[in-house]
Design a protein around this nucleic acid. Structure first.
Lengths: 180, 180
DNA sequence: GCTTGCTATGCAAATGATTGCATATTATCG
DNA sequence: CGATAATATGCAATCATTTGCATAGCAAGC
């Protein structure tokens, strides 16, 4: 039930609608836990039924109405308990690495192309991360406690991304040396 | 259908039984694509029905008989085609990073404990990786093409692991500075 | 007025993955 | 002989996730 807790985590400081949550899950928290809007809407309904979230409809001008969800006290308590539960880490499943096991002279160029594409995607992501870090997490020591945690997650993403770029370069070099 | 292709990939050089595959998936290829034995047995049956794998029962001494699967020619062709298909990267879902968003003075010690546990787990994994690298991938330039790909996947695992260790240290330092 | 695009929510079906069983063979140790 | 552990395969139920579709409000531009 980790998606439920990821959603509740996203609602710690702000009440959000399903649409807004889905957008946030494309950045920010979504870097560590991705979910589609279908999943999110469904989970929101379940969480509201369980009493962990409350919902209210908000009329908007120039846009369709939205349903905004917020953490209830039982929700906050459940979330706090969850932090102490045992974590199972679901490691990344990466088709690209599996494809590398199938490397041969024919497909080397194609695989190099995929590595290049992933490298560029990661560059864009890192750019975003760095922007957030500079803007909000300049001096981590002085942050309030919870923000220190968010900072650490962000740093994990940045470090991982930088490492990935370096790996891409190494991979492209070796792949480039394969005769077609 | 990536599990299917991961399994076929594992069968490129050797014919294996479901049990052996499940064991290999705990190391090696399994670092980039995990699967339980239930999933593997089911997928093997489907792949055999589709004609991408053949199966034969092997009598053993001192052990129960096993069913060994091997790639058929159509299977090899399907696998080769798959390499050219578009890759969707399913990024890691990490509960620990979500938990960090919930950091407070009360749970900081618990979270630090989880980081420490993960650090030790990664140390063990890296030890394994390095052993494999030293034994089989000492001079990557001279490897046959396919092994170069496997080497790159291994290096990705090693680099990622080393980065994770560094992050754990940074995290533990910051977490340690939080007053309970 | 029509199309396009963003905002906003949702259902239904299929696939993928986990969890909890169930069973059987053989070796080893006490 | 009985217990334990490793080998070996599988079913059934549930949960998680993806895919494809459906609908609708409102704005902006043509």
């Amino acid at each position: 039930m980790a998606l439920a807790h990821a959603i509740m985590t996203a609602l710690i400081e702000d009440d959000l609608s399903g649409y807004e949550l889905a957008r946030d899950f494309e950045t920010s928290l979504g870097f560590f836990w991705q979910a589609s809007h279908q999943q999110i809407y469904q989970e929101l309904r379940k969480l509201a039924e369980r009493g962990w979230l409350n919902k209210r409809e908000v009329n908007q001008r120039g846009k369709p109405n939205k349903i905004v969800y917020g953490l209830t006290q039982p929700g906050r308590e459940a979330l706090a308990r969850w932090v102490y539960s045992s974590t199972r880490s679901r490691p990344a499943k990466d088709e690209l690495l599996v494809k590398l096991y199938n490397l041969d002279a024919d497909n080397a160029a194609h695989i190099a192309g995929e590595v290049t594409a992933r490298r560029e995607e990661m560059m864009r992501r890192l750019y975003l991360y760095e922007k957030i870090r500079r803007r909000h997490y300049g001096s981590p020591q002085t942050l309030p406690t919870r923000r220190k945690g968010v900072y650490l997650a962000l740093v994990a993403g940045i470090r991982q991304g930088e490492q990935f770029l370096a790996w891409c370069d190494e991979a492209l070099e070796l792949l480039g040396s394969i005769d077609a």
